[in-house]
């Protein structure tokens, strides 16, 4: 799974779900991992009324080159955490892309056969492992495994950096969540 070779793949991801599921935080974590790897990154959230109780989504790009458009309209990776986002974004994924589906919330299946789909019942997994509230991080772990946007070591460093100091005790649980998703 190591991606420590000379040509690291670009990531153009869309993450989407309900407000409150930690979509934007997941996006920041991915972008931060790219930053720690010394790469170019961008994070662009949806904003406005839709954030307040509705759907939230963000675009995240990681590249070794300058990022042109931070708005991802044809993602090579998609993480969806609710049904409306599933319906809205699955068809936008580039052929050959990766889709990570929160399958404890979304019962639908992807009918396309030109993308790789990973169904991860992240909310159920989180509850089973005493990681309530970390479904987003579990899904990020799966995305990490599926795309190799960073190394697991970088991801662990990222978690340590972006978890607020007041919640430092949550760092091990977040790393556990990444690993859980990575290996699922």
């Amino acid at each position: 799974m190591s991606t420590q070779n000379t040509t690291r793949p670009d990531l153009n991801a869309v993450l989407a779900g309900f407000g409150g599921q930690g979509i934007l935080f997941m996006g920041k974590a991915i972008a931060y991992a790219g930053l720690l790897d010394g790469r170019e990154v961008s994070w662009l959230p949806s904003y406005g009324p839709e954030m307040r109780g509705g759907t939230a989504n963000c675009s995240v790009c990681i590249s070794d080159e300058q990022i042109c458009s931070p708005l991802v309209t044809a993602p090579d990776a998609l993480v969806v955490m609710n049904q409306p986002s599933f319906e809205k974004f699955v068809d936008t994924v580039k052929p050959g892309g990766v889709v990570v589906v929160e399958s404890s919330i979304i019962s639908a299946k992807v009918t396309r056969d030109d993308v790789t789909v990973h169904y991860v019942p992240a909310t159920t997994l989180a509850e089973e492992h005493g990681l309530k509230g970390l479904a987003n991080i579990i899904l990020m772990g799966k995305l990490l495994a599926a795309t190799g946007f960073a190394t697991r070591e970088t991801m662990a460093d990222t978690i340590a950096k972006i978890v607020p100091a007041k919640k430092a005790h949550l760092i091990p649980r977040n790393i556990e969540a990444v690993e859980l998703g990575f290996k699922y």
């Binding site: 961008s42 994070w43 904003y47 931070p70």
Partner: peptide, 10 residues
């Protein structure tokens, strides 16, 4: 614009 204001970059 809203995109430049809202986006994060290094």
């Amino acid at each position: 614009d809203g995109m430049l204001g809202q986006m994060m970059e290094p």
